[in-house]
Amino acid sequence: MLKFVQSVDVKNQLGEAVSWHQPSQTLWWTDIHGQLLYRLDWQKQIVSHWALPQGLTAFTVLDTKPIKILGSFKQGFAYCWPQTGQLEWLAKPEAHIEGNRFNDGRLDRQGRFWSATMVEKDLGQPRGVLYRLDGSSCVPQLENLRIPNALCWSIDSSVMYHTDMPTREIWRYQFDPVSGDVGQGEHFATVPKGEPDGAIIDSDDHLICALWGGSALARFSPKGELTGVFELPVSRPTCVALGGPDMNLLFVTSATDGMSEQALANEPLAGSLLVYEAPFRGVAEAEAVGHG
């Protein structure tokens, strides 16, 4: 069971990409549509945010003084200094494709940054691609995606997990941690309700996934067995992270995007950051390699 600790009422349109930064004991996340980057100093309980020049979809913190991030923005990969709004583009692999934007991404355990494009307009066309960023080069690894999500890796890096949300299925792929190449894929699990959104791997090598439209989180064993469903007070949870001083705090971002006034009235915590004490623990994030 999860024990509710607190909520941070930020009313995010599309909260996403939440992650715990171990060196500074801070939590970071983005509001993609709000074009905002958030930081929660856990010890001081201070929330800060910065306006961004473009919607940030996934990122990793490279430095905190001053703040520098590496991320996928809607149009491509870039460095960003949010305190000044400076943006330095690295690659825009799909600048020529109208209706696509970047979505879910994260570092693998070897410190390489990944992100995938989704079809924001004309959803019936599966033309999204999962890219691995090698320096400033984008290496396609999975193609024909609609809404890519749930990207994460097993503790030993032999498996990469990924979903195309509308299928409701999470897949597992053979993964070469040295080259970063994705191999053969197979069905891993089908979510019990909603659609699989952001996911992480905990210290037991279980996958924890936000269930968009399902008002819950799901937890799966390495064999794909459903080991827990955790109900939430929000219908659109988007992403999860484990962190805190003991790595047992579960953080959940959520969204208000597309909800009616009546739905928002019925769901006062929609768009909030939710914090729970969990019976499982997290694994520290890797540090980016090759991005000073």
Rank of each mutant, 00 (worst) to 15 (best):
L274Q: 10
Y79W: 12
L36M: 12
S7A: 02
S158G: 13
N248D: 14
S254G: 05
K44L: 13
L226V: 00
H21A: 00
T227L: 11
D122T: 03
D41P: 03
D197W: 11
G111H: 04
L264P: 11
H291W: 14
I155C: 06
T26Q: 15
E143Q: 14
F251D: 00
P237N: 06
S221K: 04
Y173G: 05
S260P: 01
P268T: 13
W171V: 07
Q43A: 15
N149V: 13
H49K: 15
D134H: 00
M118K: 14
S115L: 01
Q45E: 14
A78Y: 08
V159D: 03
E231I: 12
D197N: 08
F102C: 14
P222Q: 04
V139R: 03
T57I: 02
P245I: 06
S24C: 00
E277M: 01
S158P: 06
A58V: 13
F73V: 01
Y79R: 02
Y276Q: 08
Q43L: 02
P222F: 11
S215H: 06
A255M: 09
K121S: 00
V191F: 10
A199E: 01
W29R: 12
D181C: 07
V119C: 15
G76F: 03
S154E: 04
N266Y: 02
F77M: 00
R219S: 03
R172W: 01
M247P: 06
E169R: 14
K121N: 10
P126C: 01
P279K: 10
V229E: 12
R39T: 14
N149L: 13
D204Q: 12
D202Y: 07
A58I: 05
D257H: 14
Q184C: 03
A210V: 04
L27I: 08
V182C: 04
